Simulated scan of single mutants.
Amino acid sequence: MNLTRKLFAEMLGTALLLAVVIGSGVMAERLAGGNVGVALLANTLTTVGGLYVLIELFGPVSGAHFNPVVSAVMAWRRELPAASLIPYVIAQLSGAVLGAWLAHAMFDMNLLQLSTKLRSGSGQWIAEGVATFGLLLVILRAPAPRVAAMVASYIGAAYWFTASTSFANPAAVFGRMFSGSFAGIAPASAPGFVIAELVGAALAVAANHALSSNRSSVEATPPTSSPPVRHV
């Protein structure tokens, strides 16, 4: 499939994902009357639904990565050509910023913003590592027909069981730096999140390898065909 088409799908899909995350955060904050729990619940439910639809919509075109660490892992597994990795990441980062601007435009906010919401400390970093670890493990091990549902469900759960509310995506971190909304993250906090996400992704690859090795060692008969390629 034409690389330009794939890159457009990654940029558009990431933009729509960020518009969903940031836009629902703005709407939730305005309607929740100061109740942060209600706002987070509304933000979570919207993100789960939006992410599921976007994966189903763009998966057949580009793999629906929307996430540089996912693309990096797929390139490492040779399921994405190495030459496509940097263009994919650029498309994802560009889309993330466009999605933030789109959310601002829909709510009559200033397009150009920088977040001042600090998200730092060991708990936040561990949470991001855990969130990204789980996301990549789901992507690598979920049955292909259920990837979209399982990824969306995991992210929804991780919004609540992780202290960081589960960014799990350097592109999301990048885009949310440019929003002073409920979903934003201060630029000073971004490097710690991205490093934690990279560590989480690497651990997920190692865990998947260990699980696959253990599984193959106890099977009496090796599989006759390779598992289907799974991209998200």
Rank of each mutant, 00 (worst) to 15 (best):
V26F: 13
A28W: 02
R77D: 04
G99D: 01
E10F: 15
L198I: 10
A206H: 10
S164Q: 03
L135F: 13
A207N: 08
S120L: 04
S226M: 08
I86Q: 14
A183E: 14
F107Q: 12
Q113S: 13
Q124S: 08
A171E: 01
V232P: 00
A105D: 09
L12D: 10
A168D: 10
V26T: 12
V73R: 06
A96N: 09
A188T: 11
W125A: 00
A96V: 12
R176V: 11
G129W: 05
H104F: 05
A152L: 01
E197W: 15
I55H: 03
A158Y: 05
L3N: 06
N110I: 06
A142K: 15
S120K: 01
N35V: 06
P60C: 02
S164M: 02
I155V: 13
L18R: 08
G13A: 05
S84P: 15
A206P: 13
P145S: 01
A100Q: 04
W125G: 00
N208C: 14
S71R: 08
L3Y: 11
S225H: 08
L45M: 09
L111I: 14
G95S: 12
L41E: 00
T46R: 09
G99E: 02
I139C: 02
A72L: 08
A127R: 03
P170V: 11
S153Q: 12
S153N: 12
H209W: 04
I90G: 15
S120V: 04
V48K: 06
T14P: 04
A188H: 07
A157G: 04
G192I: 00
Y154G: 07
L137E: 07
V48R: 10
